[in-house]
Amino acid sequence: MTEALLSVRDLQVHYPIRSGLLQRTVGTVKAVDGVSFDVERGTTFGLVGESGCGKSTLGRAVLRLSEPTGGQVHLDGRDVLALGPEELRRERRRMQMVFQDPLASLDPRQSVESALVEPLAVHAAPGGPAAWRSRVRGLLDRVGLPAGAGRKYPHEFSGGQRQRVGIARALVLDPDLLVADEPVSALDVSVQAQVLVLLEELQRDLGLTYLVIAHDLAVVRHVSTTVGVMYLGGLVERGPSAAVYARPLHPYTRALLSAAPVPDPVAEATRERILLTGDLPSPADPPSGCRFRTRCPWVQPTRCHDERPQLRVVPGHPQDQQVACHWAEEVESGALAPRGGSRAVA
Rank of each mutant, 00 (worst) to 15 (best):
A4F: 04
L5W: 02
L5G: 02
V8N: 08
R9I: 09
D10V: 09
L11R: 02
Q12W: 07
Q12F: 09
R18S: 13
T25G: 13
G27M: 11
K30M: 08
K30F: 06
A31Y: 01
A31T: 04
V32C: 00
V39R: 01
T44L: 02
L47C: 02
V48R: 00
G59K: 00
A61S: 05
V62H: 00
E67S: 14
A82S: 15
L83F: 04
G84F: 11
E86W: 14
E86Y: 13
E87D: 12
R90P: 08
R93Q: 10
Q96I: 07
M97W: 04
V98R: 00
V98F: 04
V98I: 12
F99Y: 10
L103W: 13
S105K: 06
V112D: 05
S114V: 14
V117Y: 02
V117D: 00
E118S: 08
P119L: 02
P119S: 08
H123R: 09
P126K: 04
R133I: 08
R133L: 07
D141E: 13
D141K: 10
G148V: 06
G148H: 05
G150I: 01
P154K: 11
F157H: 11
R162S: 10
Q163W: 06
Q163V: 06
V165A: 03
G166R: 02
G166H: 04
I167F: 05
L173C: 07
L173A: 08
D176Y: 04
D176V: 13
E182C: 10
P183N: 04
V184I: 13
S185W: 03
S185A: 11
A186T: 15
V191S: 08
A193T: 13
Q194A: 09
Q194C: 09
Q194T: 12
V195E: 00
L198K: 03
E200W: 14
L202Y: 03
D205H: 06
Y210H: 08
I213Q: 01
V219F: 04
R221V: 05
T226C: 12
L232P: 00
G233I: 00
L235Y: 02
E237Q: 05
R238N: 15
R238Q: 10
P240W: 03
Y245H: 14
P248M: 06
Y252G: 03
T253D: 03
R254P: 05
R254E: 06
L256C: 14
L257V: 03
A259W: 13
P263W: 11
P263V: 05
D264M: 08
P265D: 11
V266D: 12
T270Y: 13
T270A: 14
T270D: 15
E272V: 15
L275G: 11
A284S: 08
D285L: 10
G289H: 07
C290P: 01
F292M: 02
V299L: 07
T302P: 11
R303Y: 09
C304P: 03
H305N: 14
V314R: 04
V314L: 09
H317P: 06
H317K: 10
P318C: 11
Q319I: 12
Q321W: 06
V323W: 02
H326A: 06
E329G: 11
E330A: 14
E332T: 15
A335H: 10
P338Y: 09
V345K: 14
